[in-house]
Amino acid sequence: MSGHPHDHHSDHDPHAPVEEVEGPPSEHVLLEIALRELLIEKGLFAAADVTRQIEIMDATTPEQGARLVAKFWTDPAYRQRALADGKAAAAELGIDMSVAPKLVILENTARLHHVVVCTLCSCYPRAVLGLPPAWYKSPAYRARTVKDSRGVLAEFGTSLPDDVEIRVVDSTADCRYLVVPVRPHGSEGMDEAALAGLVTRDTMIGVTLAREP
């Protein structure tokens, strides 16, 4: 098991990753194992550090971002702070932003809808949403969203009237973006925990709207 420092941990992980395919390992897999072993032997880091990073990654889920959105909706002073400095606002909620890039909060309104894409690579607000979904990294999403945002949104089941400006945000450089959706009708009496349940990963990328309660 020495080549797989986190396998034991994953046995207890409710979000355990899928197993590698049967058969001989691919050249990519061999390359990763070889590099990791060499770097550990050279003392750059320890096997336990790899395990720790995977644990941190597994614990970083879209629920973090959803908590931020719920507080943004319910706390006007927090909303102001989040619009001014998204990173500090996330850190307020106990989210580790120590090595995260600048975070910009995009507030959707009845007249303005943001949708985020990274055409050059796959920049994503990992600190608040975890790892990006496969489709976000796909050539089709990266190529099409900038020129046909309404067509892409339709594939996600999202249709917006013509009087809503759709603003595509190409995450090209040093900022990461989190979309705060319009608070849905009928959510007036809900507390923060319940509101967070209306907000999904896709909502915070901007391809879907918040769920109706």
Binding site: S149, R150, V168, T172
Partner: peptide
């Protein structure tokens, strides 16, 4: 094919 008010923003 979208509307005249649709926009795109990027960091430059």
């Amino acid at each position: 094919t979208g509307t005249a008010t649709d926009t795109l923003v990027a960091e430059i």
